[in-house]
Design a protein around this nucleic acid. Structure first.
Lengths: 265, 265
DNA sequence: CGAAATTTTGATCACGTTCAACTTCAGTGG
DNA sequence: CCACTGAAGTTGAACGTGATCAAAATTTCG
């Protein structure tokens, strides 16, 4: 399962996680190389296997290169709530690795390819290059914001609205890592997964899905979702894309060339 | 409303946010002083006033010293979902300040006393002292974990379970900043606030509250909650306290290479 | 004290769960 | 090639929870 890192620098620079990083920060010289050297292992996990298990200590950060996973919690009564789906570019171990023991499990929904490093190594690098610590803050904040949207979904939106919001969110997130077309994308989730993500029962999710199809808002073939009426969906789900700010760059106190340096952004 | 910072160092060291920091990291010499100098203003906000407004840019971090607030979202249909309640020691502007425009509002539920700094200043300090950036990551990760619990609450728990979980969470969080007794605490929230936090209607929350009282699990007088049967509540709400790890300390005490090299842009 | 906000109680009913059966389809072995 | 199996998707009927609306009771506060 685990293989040697063996990633060339040019492969690495096309990694969807690196793409996400680039949206937050202008990498300094050597940053990407440092990050790549942090990677202790890369692995392909077969679908249905758990990557993280509720209740156990977990001290890694895994960067998803390819495939889909889901962070979830199993309740006493057998119900499952999916907290978030993990897409290429996402980080496994956030927030699990910050807790004494992970509070949630993570399961591979498809075969999934990851690169892993220990949280300690990442932190050690952060002391040398604080931009990595800031990037981690930004990632965690985005995670919190995503959870907040999901909370609104299950707390106060009707099933139709939830589903519309869910589809738009996935589409938007896949788009930022180049894994979605203009108005369609592959969604290799069973209806059970979607139902557990939205806090619905499978039959009701099925009906809701059928409803959106009947209303001409979406179409589904195989596991490809087509957003037919994007504006209608956005209005229905009250979807506003989450746009992260860029991380403010380091400010050099010795401003010998202030006129040049001043950044008009 | 806004006053001069005017906080003495000894007051500052008793600030509940500083208490939370101390649980994550061993502050270095001068750290607390640096943080204090970051504070641009301190203020007391009257209850029912909004601190952050959905849709507007917000670029501050505010550390709550005293009082209660709530992060919430208003939906088109007039419903409100409270995403999280902010207690002493919590940070306003997380994750709002990481987004181009805040996605949520924050309202003061009681009069609330805060100390504010700009996110830019905090980031600038983080480049000098990376432990601040790491602390921010840890705070954001905790926020994400809290949201995850709330998501499980509204998604898959019955109203009784939700309420039990909610009360235990608040108690646990207040305890870590020394604002709760062994098994009781002040909760100055109206039932409408709690209902909006749990995704319930006010009448149903009221009945659920009455149920827990009738079952001898809790008692409420004025706005003080007493947890009579803590273990029963924990079993009911399936509550596991969130325990953050400490941030790994820097390995090599010598400072990182100074920043006089070229701007690797 | 009076007005407004909050809490409590009651009656009704729509929505979404539950449970069950049935269909479709992919994979597998006879 | 077809029968068998199991997983995933679809449909239907019955039930119960929690929302909604309304009004009364109580508390808070100007």
């Amino acid at each position: 399962m685990t293989t040697l890192p063996g990633t060339t620098m040019s492969e690495w620079s096309r990694h969807p996680f690196v793409a996400r990083l680039g949206r937050m920060i202008e990498p300094r010289k050597g940053d990407l190389e440092c990050l790549r050297r942090l990677i202790e292992s890369s692995a392909t996990i077969r679908k249905h296997r758990d990557l993280v298990i509720d209740g156990y200590e977990y001290r890694k950060l895994c960067f998803v290169e390819e495939g889909f996973a889901a962070r979830y919690k199993l309740l006493r009564n057998g119900k499952r709530q999916i907290l978030n789906v993990l897409l290429p570019g996402d980080v496994v171990g956030l927030p699990g690795s910050f807790l004494e023991r992970a509070n949630y499990s993570v399961i591979a929904v498809t075969d999934i390819r990851i690169h892993a490093c220990s949280i300690e190594a990442y932190v050690a690098l952060s002391y040398q290059r604080p931009q990595f610590a800031l990037a981690l803050s930004w990632l965690a904040a985005q995670e919190a914001a995503l959870h907040a949207e999901h909370l609104i979904n299950t707390g106060r939106r009707t099933p139709r609205e939830r589903l519309a919001h869910f589809l738009l969110e996935i589409h938007s997130r896949l788009e930022t890592v180049g894994r979605a077309a203009e108005s369609s994308f592959d969604l290799p989730f069973s209806q059970e997964v979607i139902a557990d993500a939205l806090g619905l029962s499978v039959p009701h999710l099925n009906r809701t899905l059928a409803l959106l199809r009947a209303e001409g808002l979406i179409a589904v073939h195989d596991h490809r979702v087509e957003l037919i009426d994007t504006t209608g969906l956005q209005a229905l789900g009250q979807f506003q894309p989450l746009v992260l700010t860029r991380i403010p760059p380091e400010h050099f106190p010795e401003r010998r060339t202030p006129a040049f340096r001043r950044d008009a952004r």
